[in-house]
């Protein structure tokens, strides 16, 4: 059987944080490492669609002009809104994918603006199948209102997906982002209803979404006396919380139940994971490097 695949990836590059208060630690030397990794995501990991966050218009221009990638389109989704900005750009395999106009989803709250996400439709050129993609970079944990804001954003995305399903029936929807919450946090588990239970999502594909990144919450390295001095990373981000957790799965790709046997497109979980190869880990561990998130990738197959 001939299988056709599409690979979606997300990476918080750390090049240009969205907040005016946050200063980038990126330097020309360390930024070069970002660009090398972006190229690797296309060449080594065969990404067809890559969303990058914490980028500015200048970063996008640099990527457009300097990255030597054939047949890869680049589109800026960077947009200013009061007091913050959307900080995402997308790169895509132009031989396989066409992208359409995007919309910014914004929730006004107490006089400020919550960035719920950005939505765009992409078309698989081969069969004209349209996928609805949500790109999310939710409020930071550094903000006092962050937790509430993330719940509002999750509700906004969930309502938008429900509205899309009401009009079109169950469809292929991908929600990817740096959510600044783990899969077990309220915003993702209760509000967005991104479940870890395959059987449940298969049975309730309209009400629930499937989150394959639950698996990344614990380390894939199992402890034993022989590796007792090793490191046990899990997830995409390293940050010590007062609850005693150091590793977090903030970056995730969540899919609609449509990919679980309700269309010809199927999630392929064996190629859906955190990209934490030695090249990324090397930069991640460097004190003077601004790279502080690992990318995530998800593969879907048309059967």
């Amino acid at each position: 059987m001939l299988l056709y695949k599409l690979r979606f990836a997300w990476w918080n590059t750390g090049l240009s944080p969205a907040s005016n208060k946050a200063e980038t630690k990126a330097t020309p030397e360390t930024s070069k490492r970002n660009y090398d990794h972006i190229v690797r995501l296309f060449l080594d990991y065969e990404c067809d669609f890559l969303a990058l966050c914490e980028v500015s218009e200048e970063d996008v221009t640099y990527i457009k002009n300097n990255l030597d990638l054939e047949n890869v389109g680049v589109a800026s989704l960077v947009d200013n809104i009061p007091r913050t900005r959307f900080d995402v750009c997308v790169m895509y395999n132009a031989k396989k994918i066409k992208i359409q106009e995007h919309t910014n989803l914004i929730k006004p709250y107490m006089g400020s603006r919550i960035k719920s996400g950005q939505v765009l439709h992409i078309e698989n050129i081969d069969d004209k199948e349209v996928f609805r993609i949500y790109l999310c970079h939710w409020s930071s944990r550094m903000q006092d209102s962050g937790s509430e804001n993330r719940k509002f954003a999750a509700q906004h995305i969930y309502d938008s997906i429900q509205s899309y399903f009401i009009e079109n029936g169950i469809k292929e929807v991908v929600v990817m982002g740096d959510f600044n919450d783990n899969p077990y946090d309220e915003s993702l588990m209760k509000t967005l209803r991104a479940s870890r239970c395959l059987d449940s999502v298969k049975k309730h594909p309209i009400d629930l979404l499937y989150n394959p990144f639950w698996k990344t919450v614990v380390s894939s390295i199992e402890y034993s006396h022989s590796n007792s001095s090793g490191k046990f990373s899990s997830g995409t981000y390293n940050y010590q919380t007062k609850e005693g957790v150091r590793w977090h799965s903030f970056d995730q790709i969540i899919l609609s139940g449509c990919f679980l046997g309700h269309s010809k497109w199927h999630l392929n979980e064996s190629n859906t994971t955190v990209i934490d190869d030695c090249e990324f880990k090397m930069d991640f561990d460097k004190k003077d490097c601004h790279i502080d998130h690992m990318p995530v990738i998800a593969e879907i197959l048309r059967v």
Partner: peptide
């Protein structure tokens, strides 16, 4: 409510009249 307001590329969701007025002012 909620009411979705679309202007330019922005889609803003308002949960009450206060938020609606805020968005319309913007």
């Amino acid at each position: 409510y909620p009411i979705n307001i679309v202007f330019q590329r922005n889609e803003m969701v308002c949960s009450n009249q206060v938020e609606l007025i805020d968005v319309m002012k913007e």
